[in-house]
């Protein structure tokens, strides 16, 4: 079963199958690591965008949940990503003012838009559109 794991509330609302992580980008990675341990394949790379990874307040990853199946490539990728994110202080969504937070959330959604579409996970295209994509207050 395909599933989006994200701490981006606007993107969570727009996906057909999604798990919202109320926390930082590192919390998303740790959640995905748990899923990989229990049986999931990572479909989108756990690092995304062009910022220093721990400066990305939002993280969104698509996984294919396959209970009992441990994919070693996914395990390697997520462990490596967790190490990168743990190497410096994390910027959490709550650390940012509303406008900046909305910009980061917007770019996070944009970087996932193509992949969500490809894997048939967009529930409502309008929710991915710029004016309607808003971050929930944190």
């Amino acid at each position: 079963m395909l599933r989006l794991i994200t701490n981006n509330a606007g993107l969570h609302d727009s996906a057909k199958s999604s798990e919202y992580v109320d926390g930082s980008s590192l919390d998303v990675l740790i959640c995905v690591r748990g899923l990989v341990h229990s049986g999931s394949i990572i479909l989108t790379h756990p690092l995304c965008g062009n910022l220093r990874p721990n400066h990305q307040p939002f993280r969104s990853i698509i996984v294919d949940v396959k209970p009992g199946y441990v994919d070693l490539d996914s395990l390697s990728a997520i462990e490596s990503a967790v190490n990168v994110y743990q190497s410096a202080e994390i910027i959490a969504p709550k650390d940012l003012d509303a406008l900046t937070r909305a910009d980061y959330a917007y770019i996070d959604a944009e970087l996932m838009r193509e992949s969500l579409g490809r894997y048939g996970l967009i529930r409502d295209e309008r929710l991915c559109d710029a004016p309607s994509l808003r971050v929930k207050e944190v």
Partner: peptide, 8 residues
Amino acid sequence: ENVTLADK
């Protein structure tokens, strides 16, 4: 340099 691992 795409986002999905399959593309990469």
